[in-house]
Design a protein around this nucleic acid. Structure first.
Lengths: 179, 179
DNA sequence: AAGCAATATGCAATATGTTGCATATTGTAT
DNA sequence: ATACAATATGCAACATATTGCATATTGCTT
């Protein structure tokens, strides 16, 4: 699975604690790989047990140690191995579409308000992604080069959200129409 | 979760066996909800234990009984309850994007061939979806009305795949360029 | 000072999904 | 006839993810 490898990628860019990883997910990988904090801590332990991470415990007065993880050589090897293997096709599990598919067992009003709810979150996501894109496009060319690949994943988000919204327009028209 | 409810929807349309459900997934719900046959059998048992399904065992000579499941009134209630509750936002876990995000730890050639592999499956999926759409559009209006909602989910697939392919063009251009 | 949100870490139980295996029949091709 | 693919059902072990809980600190607000 990829959570392990997503974590390796983030820690390879910069060592950090569990919470650091969790936060970094929110602004980057989180748009296409989701994880709860509990699972991040769990996987960090597994990665450590597998020898793919080292941990440095920074003692803090009174507080429990701060554990800073960094990728080991073994971890880098594993990451490289994973990157060279074919990525699994992305499994889609979309409850909204299941609901729509079986929508004749409920009211059109229900479907319409559900669509509105989802449209809202997709519009918000698109706004966020476009703000990040704007920021990227204002970087000097040398900086842009550094983030070239993450930028491509951002583009996926933008095109994906735009397609979702275009579809939602079709659905609203169909549901609002002779329904 | 929705696998249970996806099964309820399919069985409400027409009672059937585990394998029937599994096959029906392939041509409809399977495009946006995936399940292995093992999990379908498992969930059928759980649905039965929960009282949401009845089972009719057809004895067959020599062969083990054929178990035909159908939705009970309790099952219909549950389905209705689920349809009226907000659907969970669709969790995205896309290994290809993780790979691209961390792509500077591998070669551009690797990324390019990976993209080609995925493009292939997306092109195939789009072709299939368009064939189903063509079939739908050739139905008489009365039949179209019956499948109106499933058709909307089909449109989601088509628009989604087209967006994916448009994105892939961008990626190939970027990777093939000053990479 | 008291209260609340955000930061920060983690365990346990449960839910969900995958992989590997086992088994038997039916239909098709050589 | 024999082999092989497809149909058909299911268990067990394992992997992955979610939910609920527990705990403690820091910083902001009233």
């Amino acid at each position: 699975m990829s959570l392990k490898h997503a974590i390796l990628i983030l820690l390879e860019q910069e060592p950090g604690t569990g919470y650091d990883i969790f936060k970094r997910f929110k602004n980057s990988l989180g748009y296409f790989w989701n994880a709860k904090h509990q699972q991040v801590y769990l996987e960090l332990k597994k990665l450590y047990d597998a020898g793919w991470l080292d941990v440095e415990a920074l003692p803090q007065d009174d507080k429990p140690d701060k554990k800073i993880y960094r990728v080991t050589q073994e971890g880098r090897n594993e990451l490289k191995r994973w990157l060279e293997a074919p990525a699994k096709p992305n499994k889609i599990n979309d409850a909204l579409l299941v609901k729509l598919f079986g929508g004749h067992f409920t009211t059109p009003e229900n479907l319409i308000s559900e669509m509105a709810r989802h449209r809202n979150t997709h519009e918000n996501t698109l706004r966020q992604l476009k703000a990040i894109e704007m920021h990227y496009l204002n970087l000097p060319a040398t900086q842009q080069a550094v983030y070239r690949l993450p930028y491509l994943t951002l583009r996926r988000g933008i095109l994906g959200e735009e397609a979702w919204l275009a579809w939602a327009d079709e659905v609203d028209k169909a549901l609002g129409g002779p329904g």
